[in-house]
Structure formats: C-alpha cells, structure tokens
Amino acid sequence: MRKNPVFQNEVLGAAILQVRSGRARSRTTLAKALGVSPSTVGMYVDRLIAENFLSESGVRQGPMGRPRRLLTTLAGAGWFAGVEFHALRVQAVGVDFSGRQTTAVVRPLPAEVTADSVIKTILLCVAKLTEAMQGPLLAVGLGVPGLVDPQAGIGLHYAFIPDWNQVPVSSLISTRLGVPVILQNNLRAIALAERWFGMGHDLNDYVILGPRSGFGIAMVLHGKLVEGAHHAAGEVGRWPWPLGGGDGTSQELHHVLSAPATWRRLAGVSVREKLPEDLRAALVEFAATDSAEWQAVCADFARVIGCLQLLTDTEVFILHGPLTALGERFCESIIRAARALAPALATAPLKVVPSVLGDDAGALGAASLAMEAWSPA
C-alpha cells in the first residue's frame, strides 16, 4: 500500500464509490475497477471494514471459481446533505451512506430574496434534515443556479437574486457546519442525480435539458461533467433568438423557451400574465393538444436540440423541469421536427426523453456531488 495519505484517501473514496454504485461487489471486482492488485485492495477493504464504512457478508457463487464474499456499504456510517435553490425556494434532501434518500425539506424564500436569506435558509434546511438522519453529517453538496466557480466555492452571478454576485457560498456554509461543502451549477448537479438515481447510471454521454425559470443545459461527455474554461458551459439560454438574428431586435433564447415562457406561448397569453401557482400541473392541460402554438414551440426546441446534437453527438437528451409534464409526446414531436429541419439528423440516433426524477432532482444531484467528492480522513 502506498504511503502517500492523499493518494490513499483518494483510493479509499473511490473504493466506496465503486461499492456504493454496485459496480464492485467483491474484492476481486473492486481490484479490477480500481486498477490495483488484489493484495492492495484487500488492505484497503480491511481498513474500510474496520472503520465501519463497508461490510462483507454472505457468498456469491460465480459461474466459475470459489464463492465470493459480498461487499456493501453501511448505511448508518454517516449521511450527505444535498441542497438546491432558485429565486423562489430552497430544497434539501438527506442521503444515507449507501446512497438512499431518507428525508427531504422544502422552504420558500422571501419575496425580496437576498444572498443572506438564501444562506440562512440553507442552514435551516440542513438543521431540519439532521433531526431525521442517523450518524454524522459527512459533507454537503450545493446546486447553485447561474454561474459558479466550483474550485473556489463561489457563486459568481445569478440574475434572479439581485445581490448574488461573488458569493463565497462554500466557506459560508462550511464554517457553520464544520464539514466539506462542494458547490456546482444546479443543472450539472442534476446530471449527477441522473447518474446515481435516474437513467444515466450506464451512460457515458448525455445532456440535461433544463428549461426551468431560464434555459440551460448540462453535458456529460466520456463520463465527466463539462464545465468550460470560464465555468459557463451550457449557458445556451443566452443564445440570441431567433438564431441568425443580429439586427438588434432579437431576444435571448430563455425568453421564449423557459418553462414560464413555454406555458405562456401554449396558453396564448402575454408575458405580463401571472404564472399559475403549480406550473407543472398547468402544463398538463396542453400535453394532448396539437395547436399552432404547440407546433411552433416544438419547432423552436427542435432547432436548439438539433444544433446541440450535431455539436455533442450525445446518446440522449434528458428533459428536466416543469415541461416534463408534456410527456413523451412532446419529446417525440421535437425529434420529428428536428429531423425535418436538419437533413443531417434524418438518420442520426437522436433521442429525447423526459426524466423520471421529480422536482427534487437538483437536491439529489447535490447530494450526489457530496458523495462523489467525499473520502475518509
């Protein structure tokens, strides 16, 4: 076993992730997954068992050879908090050491929301989770809207909270809670939620579509999140719209394809129309329509997704947010429109599906972020 403690902790953390994900269920499969010798992995496993992070029990008979003892994580070894917010609310989940969601909390934000009120509400949510969870809090993951600097733990800018600029979120939360706090853009956090709790478990390449209060995407390429050189990868909501504009009169894409904008278009109301309290439920009304507005919305989404498919060559686009209420028919309509608009996509394996995860996907993703980043001290 190497003596470098940083290396050892990284391998120990990686070992726990492999067992937690189910990709490694024995010492032999764990050694293969980590690329280390069986004798070395044995020492790591023995240490993790001694520290009550892993257990080894039962036997599993493979097609050949001796029966294998099964490795599992111990759910009560500790827990992870995942927190995601936007301008209206903070949502938090508690996930046990084995990666199972145990409890959830939602708190509204005040109408005149500030950075300080967001931080205070996050702390209140984590305190509420603590009442229901077992074992020590090990780490907190934060899904933060807008531009973020994950390495520095800073929320750079979010247009819908006036003073959300250069906010040192990680240090503000970590100082109060005394545990590591890992920050990421909320759509990238959702991408991790798909990896652990949704349909991204066995995918190396997928794109999260996030038409929510704005419009953004998160990309996973070759199994890794794409952040960009300036932490702004996926900010397609800032594209000029319509594409090919430039006469000074065009809008930005999020003005016409965010969830609120899409509802207003389908409902045929002006931008001044008050949004329904439950936007997802209101959108269900249009899931079976085939109006001119429906066709126009699908065509606009098709232009965006067609361009993204040619750029990323992804396996699947996973739709998140209130527009999942429009169902598979909405996704299929987008695919047909994209193939009609772009001849290059006529035979391409274009796939768009609604996520099976709910409104807490961002918080689940933030908890996933904490799970992936944590390693034993």
Rank of each mutant, 00 (worst) to 15 (best):
V316N: 04
G321V: 05
G153M: 08
Q18Y: 00
Q251H: 13
S57M: 11
K351P: 01
L225T: 11
I190C: 13
W196V: 02
P376H: 01
A299D: 14
E252H: 14
T289Y: 11
G216Q: 07
G210Q: 06
A259D: 04
G94Y: 10
A338W: 07
V126W: 06
V169M: 15
L74C: 09
L275H: 09
L345R: 08
E56I: 01
D46M: 04
G82N: 05
A189H: 11
A229R: 14
F7C: 03
G210F: 07
V90N: 09
G155F: 07
M371R: 08
P136L: 02
G35C: 03
A337F: 07
F197T: 01
Q61L: 13
S174A: 15
L109G: 06
W294F: 10
P168E: 04
I182H: 15
D278W: 08
V105E: 12
T312E: 07
A75S: 15
A139R: 06
A15G: 01
A104K: 14
H86P: 00
F330D: 02
H157D: 10
L137W: 12
E293Y: 04
V256S: 09
V113D: 02
A229K: 14
A373Y: 00
V167N: 04
V169C: 08
R89I: 02
G223R: 10
S174C: 04
E252L: 12
P150R: 12
D247N: 14
G22R: 03
A139K: 04
A377W: 08
Q18E: 01
L12T: 00
R60N: 14
P145D: 05
R329Y: 12
R107D: 05
A31R: 00
I154L: 13
L187K: 11
E194W: 12
S98D: 11
L12A: 10
C307E: 13
Y158I: 03
M1Q: 08
V226A: 11
P108N: 09
G246F: 09
P38E: 10
A233N: 08
G13D: 00
G94F: 07
P38K: 04
L12S: 02
G198T: 03
K224C: 06
L34Q: 00
V19Y: 00
T121N: 06
W263L: 03
R69S: 13
A346H: 12
T28A: 14
G358I: 01
F286M: 11
L283Y: 12
T262Q: 04
P242W: 11
M43Y: 12
C331Y: 10
R27Y: 01
R69F: 03
I16C: 00
A77L: 04
I335M: 09
D290W: 10
D149L: 06
L326V: 06
S26F: 02
G198Y: 11
D300K: 05
L345V: 04
D278G: 09
S57L: 05
A115Y: 06
E328I: 09
